[in-house]
Protein backbone atom coordinates (compact mmCIF):
# COMPACT_ATOMS: atom_id res chain seq x y z
CA UNK A 1 0.00 0.00 0.00
CA UNK A 2 1.83 3.06 1.25
CA UNK A 3 5.04 1.20 0.61
CA UNK A 4 4.91 2.06 -3.02
CA UNK A 5 3.68 5.62 -2.86
CA UNK A 6 6.09 8.32 -3.87
CA UNK A 7 8.94 6.06 -4.76
CA UNK A 8 11.27 7.55 -2.20
CA UNK A 9 13.49 5.02 -0.49
CA UNK A 10 12.45 6.04 3.01
CA UNK A 11 8.78 5.48 2.33
CA UNK A 12 8.73 1.74 2.73
CA UNK A 13 10.53 1.69 6.04
CA UNK A 14 9.82 2.45 9.62
CA UNK A 15 11.78 5.36 11.09
CA UNK A 16 14.06 3.06 13.10
CA UNK A 17 14.95 1.21 9.91
CA UNK A 18 15.58 4.48 8.12
CA UNK A 19 18.17 5.35 10.76
CA UNK A 20 20.01 2.09 10.35
CA UNK A 21 19.93 2.44 6.58
CA UNK A 22 21.39 5.90 6.95
CA UNK A 23 23.98 4.43 9.29
CA UNK A 24 24.92 1.82 6.71
CA UNK A 25 25.09 4.49 4.04
CA UNK A 26 27.43 6.63 6.11
CA UNK A 27 29.63 3.64 6.88
CA UNK A 28 29.73 2.79 3.18
CA UNK A 29 30.67 6.35 2.32
CA UNK A 30 33.36 6.21 4.97
CA UNK A 31 34.71 2.97 3.56
CA UNK A 32 34.77 4.36 0.04
CA UNK A 33 36.21 7.73 0.90
CA UNK A 34 38.60 6.65 3.58
CA UNK A 35 39.44 3.24 2.19
CA UNK A 36 41.04 1.03 4.76
CA UNK A 37 41.48 3.92 7.16
CA UNK A 38 37.82 4.15 8.08
CA UNK A 39 37.13 0.61 9.12
CA UNK A 40 40.15 0.21 11.34
CA UNK A 41 39.93 -1.21 14.79
CA UNK A 42 40.82 2.19 16.11
CA UNK A 43 37.88 3.97 14.50
CA UNK A 44 35.43 1.27 15.42
CA UNK A 45 36.54 1.36 19.03
CA UNK A 46 36.48 5.14 18.94
CA UNK A 47 32.91 5.18 17.68
CA UNK A 48 31.82 2.87 20.46
CA UNK A 49 33.68 4.82 23.11
CA UNK A 50 32.27 8.10 21.94
CA UNK A 51 28.73 6.89 21.79
CA UNK A 52 28.55 4.92 25.04
CA UNK A 53 27.79 7.76 27.45
CA UNK A 54 25.39 9.57 25.13
CA UNK A 55 23.87 6.22 24.22
CA UNK A 56 23.09 5.34 27.82
CA UNK A 57 21.50 8.72 28.49
CA UNK A 58 19.56 8.60 25.25
CA UNK A 59 18.14 5.18 26.05
CA UNK A 60 16.81 6.57 29.33
CA UNK A 61 15.52 9.66 27.56
CA UNK A 62 13.66 7.34 25.16
CA UNK A 63 11.59 6.04 28.05
CA UNK A 64 10.63 9.53 29.21
CA UNK A 65 9.77 10.68 25.71
CA UNK A 66 7.78 7.54 24.90
CA UNK A 67 5.65 8.24 27.96
CA UNK A 68 4.92 11.70 26.59
CA UNK A 69 7.36 13.50 28.87
CA UNK A 70 10.97 14.63 28.52
CA UNK A 71 13.96 15.23 30.78
CA UNK A 72 16.24 18.23 30.48
CA UNK A 73 17.97 17.55 33.78
CA UNK A 74 20.05 14.56 32.63
CA UNK A 75 23.15 16.64 31.86
CA UNK A 76 23.54 18.16 35.31
CA UNK A 77 22.57 14.86 36.86
CA UNK A 78 25.50 13.23 35.05
CA UNK A 79 27.83 15.80 36.58
CA UNK A 80 26.31 15.33 39.99
CA UNK A 81 26.55 11.55 39.97
CA UNK A 82 30.12 11.64 38.66
CA UNK A 83 31.02 13.73 41.69
CA UNK A 84 29.03 11.70 44.19
CA UNK A 85 30.65 8.53 42.91
CA UNK A 86 34.18 9.95 42.82
CA UNK A 87 33.95 11.49 46.26
CA UNK A 88 32.84 8.25 47.85
CA UNK A 89 35.22 6.11 45.83
CA UNK A 90 38.06 8.29 47.05
CA UNK A 91 37.61 6.47 50.33
CA UNK A 92 38.10 3.23 48.47
CA UNK A 93 34.49 2.17 48.57
CA UNK A 94 33.66 1.48 44.93
CA UNK A 95 30.40 -0.30 45.58
CA UNK A 96 29.27 2.47 47.91
CA UNK A 97 30.08 5.05 45.28
CA UNK A 98 28.04 3.25 42.67
CA UNK A 99 25.15 2.72 45.04
CA UNK A 100 25.14 6.36 46.16
CA UNK A 101 25.25 7.65 42.59
CA UNK A 102 22.33 5.46 41.58
CA UNK A 103 20.37 6.37 44.70
CA UNK A 104 20.81 10.07 44.01
CA UNK A 105 19.67 9.51 40.44
CA UNK A 106 16.59 7.62 41.53
CA UNK A 107 15.61 10.39 43.93
CA UNK A 108 16.05 13.05 41.26
CA UNK A 109 13.91 11.03 38.85
CA UNK A 110 11.29 10.49 41.50
CA UNK A 111 11.08 14.21 42.21
CA UNK A 112 10.86 15.01 38.50
CA UNK A 113 8.07 12.49 38.05
CA UNK A 114 6.10 13.62 41.06
CA UNK A 115 6.37 17.30 40.18
CA UNK A 116 5.16 16.56 36.64
CA UNK A 117 2.27 14.29 37.56
CA UNK A 118 1.08 15.48 40.95
CA UNK A 119 1.86 19.19 40.77
CA UNK A 120 1.00 19.16 37.07
CA UNK A 121 4.02 21.18 36.01
CA UNK A 122 4.93 20.92 32.34
CA UNK A 123 7.84 18.48 31.99
CA UNK A 124 9.91 21.12 30.26
CA UNK A 125 9.67 23.50 33.20
CA UNK A 126 9.84 20.82 35.90
CA UNK A 127 13.08 19.33 34.59
CA UNK A 128 14.50 22.74 33.71
CA UNK A 129 13.84 23.71 37.34
CA UNK A 130 15.57 20.54 38.48
CA UNK A 131 18.50 21.45 36.23
CA UNK A 132 18.85 24.80 37.94
CA UNK A 133 18.57 23.30 41.40
CA UNK A 134 21.33 20.78 40.74
CA UNK A 135 23.47 23.29 38.88
CA UNK A 136 23.27 25.63 41.85
CA UNK A 137 24.34 22.91 44.24
CA UNK A 138 27.22 21.89 41.96
CA UNK A 139 28.45 25.44 41.47
CA UNK A 140 28.19 26.09 45.17
CA UNK A 141 30.18 23.05 46.22
CA UNK A 142 32.70 22.62 43.42
CA UNK A 143 35.06 24.76 41.39
CA UNK A 144 36.52 21.96 39.36
CA UNK A 145 37.09 18.23 39.27
CA UNK A 146 36.92 16.56 42.63
CA UNK A 147 37.20 13.11 44.15
CA UNK A 148 39.19 10.24 42.72
CA UNK A 149 38.15 6.91 41.42
CA UNK A 150 40.45 3.97 42.04
CA UNK A 151 42.25 2.39 39.11
CA UNK A 152 40.08 -0.67 39.40
CA UNK A 153 37.04 1.42 38.51
CA UNK A 154 38.79 3.01 35.55
CA UNK A 155 38.68 -0.31 33.76
CA UNK A 156 35.07 0.48 33.02
CA UNK A 157 36.04 3.49 30.97
CA UNK A 158 39.09 2.23 29.15
CA UNK A 159 39.27 -1.52 28.93
CA UNK A 160 38.06 -3.52 26.06
CA UNK A 161 37.50 -7.13 25.36
CA UNK A 162 38.61 -7.79 21.83
CA UNK A 163 37.33 -4.94 19.72
CA UNK A 164 34.54 -4.13 22.15
CA UNK A 165 35.08 -1.60 24.93
CA UNK A 166 33.57 -2.37 28.31
CA UNK A 167 31.71 0.92 28.15
CA UNK A 168 30.01 -0.17 24.95
CA UNK A 169 28.97 -3.40 26.62
CA UNK A 170 27.53 -1.41 29.48
CA UNK A 171 25.59 0.63 26.96
CA UNK A 172 24.40 -2.53 25.27
CA UNK A 173 23.26 -3.90 28.61
CA UNK A 174 21.35 -0.74 29.46
CA UNK A 175 19.76 -0.68 26.02
CA UNK A 176 18.81 -4.34 26.24
CA UNK A 177 17.37 -3.85 29.71
CA UNK A 178 15.24 -0.92 28.58
CA UNK A 179 14.20 -2.74 25.45
CA UNK A 180 13.22 -5.65 27.63
CA UNK A 181 11.18 -3.42 29.93
CA UNK A 182 9.43 -1.80 26.99
CA UNK A 183 8.61 -4.95 25.08
CA UNK A 184 8.20 -7.60 27.75
CA UNK A 185 6.75 -6.02 30.85
CA UNK A 186 3.38 -4.55 31.63
CA UNK A 187 5.10 -1.32 32.58
CA UNK A 188 6.55 -1.08 29.08
CA UNK A 189 3.19 -1.61 27.42
CA UNK A 190 1.71 1.03 29.65
CA UNK A 191 4.46 3.50 28.80
CA UNK A 192 3.35 3.32 25.17
CA UNK A 193 -0.29 3.62 26.17
CA UNK A 194 0.27 6.68 28.34
CA UNK A 195 2.36 8.37 25.67
CA UNK A 196 -0.15 7.46 22.98
CA UNK A 197 -3.27 8.73 24.72
CA UNK A 198 -3.41 9.39 28.45
CA UNK A 199 -7.20 9.35 28.50
CA UNK A 200 -7.49 5.99 26.74
CA UNK A 201 -4.86 4.57 29.07
CA UNK A 202 -6.67 5.82 32.14
CA UNK A 203 -10.02 4.44 30.96
CA UNK A 204 -8.31 1.09 30.48
CA UNK A 205 -7.25 1.05 34.08
CA UNK A 206 -3.65 2.13 33.67
CA UNK A 207 -2.30 4.11 36.62
CA UNK A 208 -0.93 6.81 34.40
CA UNK A 209 0.83 8.94 37.03
CA UNK A 210 2.76 5.98 38.28
CA UNK A 211 3.90 5.10 34.79
CA UNK A 212 5.27 8.59 34.20
CA UNK A 213 7.03 8.60 37.56
CA UNK A 214 8.65 5.21 36.91
CA UNK A 215 9.91 6.30 33.49
CA UNK A 216 11.48 9.36 35.04
CA UNK A 217 13.20 7.26 37.69
CA UNK A 218 14.54 4.93 34.99
CA UNK A 219 15.61 7.86 32.83
CA UNK A 220 17.51 9.39 35.75
CA UNK A 221 19.09 6.05 36.58
CA UNK A 222 20.45 5.89 33.05
CA UNK A 223 21.90 9.37 33.49
CA UNK A 224 23.44 8.15 36.75
CA UNK A 225 25.06 5.22 34.96
CA UNK A 226 26.43 7.60 32.33
CA UNK A 227 27.80 9.72 35.19
CA UNK A 228 29.57 6.68 36.59
CA UNK A 229 31.03 5.89 33.19
CA UNK A 230 32.35 9.43 32.76
CA UNK A 231 33.80 9.42 36.27
CA UNK A 232 35.70 6.27 35.43
CA UNK A 233 37.02 7.86 32.23
CA UNK A 234 38.09 11.09 33.92
CA UNK A 235 39.37 9.38 37.03
CA UNK A 236 37.41 11.94 39.00
CA UNK A 237 34.07 13.69 39.19
CA UNK A 238 33.57 16.95 37.31
CA UNK A 239 30.85 19.57 37.82
CA UNK A 240 30.54 20.42 34.14
CA UNK A 241 31.13 17.06 32.48
CA UNK A 242 27.44 16.65 31.71
CA UNK A 243 26.65 20.11 30.47
CA UNK A 244 29.87 20.38 28.46
CA UNK A 245 28.87 17.22 26.66
CA UNK A 246 25.46 18.71 25.89
CA UNK A 247 23.86 15.48 27.03
CA UNK A 248 20.48 17.06 27.70
CA UNK A 249 19.60 18.31 24.25
CA UNK A 250 21.76 15.79 22.39
CA UNK A 251 20.05 12.87 24.04
CA UNK A 252 16.67 14.27 23.01
CA UNK A 253 17.99 14.84 19.51
CA UNK A 254 19.28 11.27 19.30
CA UNK A 255 15.93 9.87 20.42
CA UNK A 256 14.06 11.89 17.83
CA UNK A 257 16.63 11.01 15.18
CA UNK A 258 15.88 7.38 16.02
CA UNK A 259 12.29 7.88 15.01
CA UNK A 260 10.62 8.18 18.40
CA UNK A 261 7.87 10.79 18.26
CA UNK A 262 8.53 13.76 20.53
CA UNK A 263 4.87 13.64 21.51
CA UNK A 264 5.27 10.10 22.81
CA UNK A 265 3.67 6.70 22.26
CA UNK A 266 5.65 5.72 19.22
CA UNK A 267 9.20 4.54 18.71
CA UNK A 268 11.65 2.50 20.69
CA UNK A 269 15.11 1.86 22.02
CA UNK A 270 16.37 0.30 18.79
CA UNK A 271 15.92 3.52 16.86
CA UNK A 272 17.65 5.48 19.57
CA UNK A 273 20.68 3.20 19.45
CA UNK A 274 20.74 3.75 15.70
CA UNK A 275 20.41 7.51 16.18
CA UNK A 276 23.33 7.64 18.61
CA UNK A 277 25.49 5.46 16.39
CA UNK A 278 24.64 7.57 13.37
CA UNK A 279 25.79 10.70 15.17
CA UNK A 280 28.99 8.97 16.28
CA UNK A 281 29.78 7.51 12.87
CA UNK A 282 29.23 10.86 11.23
CA UNK A 283 31.63 12.24 13.77
CA UNK A 284 34.28 9.65 12.89
CA UNK A 285 33.80 10.23 9.22
CA UNK A 286 34.36 13.94 9.72
CA UNK A 287 37.44 13.25 11.81
CA UNK A 288 38.74 11.10 9.04
CA UNK A 289 38.08 13.82 6.51
CA UNK A 290 39.57 16.31 8.93
CA UNK A 291 36.46 18.39 8.78
CA UNK A 292 36.34 21.33 11.12
CA UNK A 293 34.63 20.35 14.37
CA UNK A 294 32.20 23.25 14.08
CA UNK A 295 31.08 22.02 10.72
CA UNK A 296 30.07 18.82 12.47
CA UNK A 297 27.63 20.74 14.62
CA UNK A 298 26.10 22.29 11.54
CA UNK A 299 25.65 18.92 9.88
CA UNK A 300 24.28 17.42 13.05
CA UNK A 301 21.65 20.15 13.26
CA UNK A 302 20.68 19.67 9.62
CA UNK A 303 20.53 15.88 9.98
CA UNK A 304 18.23 16.02 13.00
CA UNK A 305 15.77 18.44 11.44
CA UNK A 306 15.86 16.66 8.10
CA UNK A 307 15.18 13.31 9.76
CA UNK A 308 12.08 14.66 11.46
CA UNK A 309 10.90 16.24 8.23
CA UNK A 310 11.09 12.78 6.63
CA UNK A 311 9.27 11.09 9.53
CA UNK A 312 6.52 13.70 9.53
CA UNK A 313 6.03 13.35 5.79
CA UNK A 314 5.77 9.59 6.16
CA UNK A 315 3.23 9.79 8.90
CA UNK A 316 0.99 11.92 6.73
CA UNK A 317 1.06 9.62 3.73
Amino acid sequence: MSEKVGGRLSLGFRPAQVVFLALLAVVAIGAIVGGGEFLTLETVVGIQQRSAALGIVAVGQTLAILAGSLDLSVAVLISLTSLVAAEIMQTGDVAGGIAAALAVSAVVGLVNGVVITKLKVHAFIATLGMTLVIKGVLDHLYDGPAGRVPDSFQHLGYDRIGPIPVSAMLWACVALACWFVLTRTRMGYQVYAVGGDVEVARLSGVRTDRVVIVTHVLCSLCAGIAGLLLASRLGAGAPTVGTDGGYDLESIAAVVLGGTALAGGKGGVGGTVGGVLLLAVLDSLFNLLEVDSFFKDVVRGVVIVAAVVIYVRRRKS
Binding site: Y192, D197, E199, K266
Partner: peptide
Protein backbone atom coordinates in the same frame (compact mmCIF):
# COMPACT_ATOMS: atom_id res chain seq x y z
CA UNK B 1 -18.85 6.22 18.57
CA UNK B 2 -15.41 7.69 19.02
CA UNK B 3 -13.31 4.65 19.43
CA UNK B 4 -10.99 4.52 22.39
CA UNK B 5 -8.03 2.77 20.84
CA UNK B 6 -4.34 3.52 20.45
CA UNK B 7 -3.60 3.77 16.71
CA UNK B 8 0.12 3.13 17.11
CA UNK B 9 -0.35 -0.19 18.90
Amino acid sequence: QELTLLPER
